[in-house]
């Protein structure tokens, strides 16, 4: 699993660059690099369905983020840094990592999962559903309620975007609306 460590180091480096760089377009491109690294990590961890999905989703996400940032002449924020706030946040993150380290000792070690539920799925998936891709048999047959909820969330998000970005029934630029009308 040596290549996985290198890939994670690359992702952490990309994330730090994306957080700390001043230019917004470079930041968006750096987060795209992190997402593509995640796609390769899924491939190494033997999850090809997720690798395909992550690759396609990352490209679409990158297009939308670039659409949001391009042609906005954003003044670079050259305010003085709030030192106290940053130190408090860093202390909080240090505590979080310490307790995470304590909690991770109780997990089963890497590469040896428990798989109490999945034994059943692996043994009887083909006989009960007839699908040879076991991930598809889990998401669409054994746990189809998850997919139904996902469809609901997606529908709500699409309706939310269309409502936020609508063009009908909005105030015009010069129009003055009284208080009681609003």
């Amino acid at each position: 699993m040596f290549e996985l460590y290198i890939l994670l180091l690359f992702m952490i480096l990309g994330a730090i660059i994306a957080v700390e760089i001043k230019d917004l377009l470079s930041s968006v491109i750096a987060v795209g690099a992190v997402g593509l690294g995640l796609s390769v990590a899924f491939l190494i961890l033997k999850a090809p369905d997720l690798a395909i999905t992550q690759l396609a989703v990352e490209i679409l996400c990158l297009i939308i983020l670039i659409r949001a940032t391009i042609r906005r002449d954003i003044p670079t924020l050259n305010r003085r840094k709030e030192v106290v706030g940053s130190i408090i946040v860093l202390l909080f993150i240090g505590g979080f990592l310490f307790f995470a380290y304590l909690a991770l000792k109780d997990l089963p070690s890497f590469g040896h999962p428990i798989m109490r539920v999945s034994q059943n799925y692996l043994a009887e998936g083909l006989r009960k559903t007839g699908a040879t891709n076991l991930v598809a048999s889990v998401i669409l047959d054994f746990r189809a309620y998850d997919t139904l909820g996902e469809a609901t969330v997606l529908f709500t998000a699409v309706i939310g975007v269309l409502a936020v970005l609508r063009r009908i029934g909005r105030k015009k630029v010069d129009e003055v609306v009284k208080e009681e009308d609003e």
Partner: peptide, 24 residues
Amino acid sequence: IVTHGHISPGGGFAGGVIIALSFI
């Protein structure tokens, strides 16, 4: 990707995003 989702890697989510990407 969509039609072979139950035999090989892929499925509705990945195929749907790829079809949307072609129109985009």
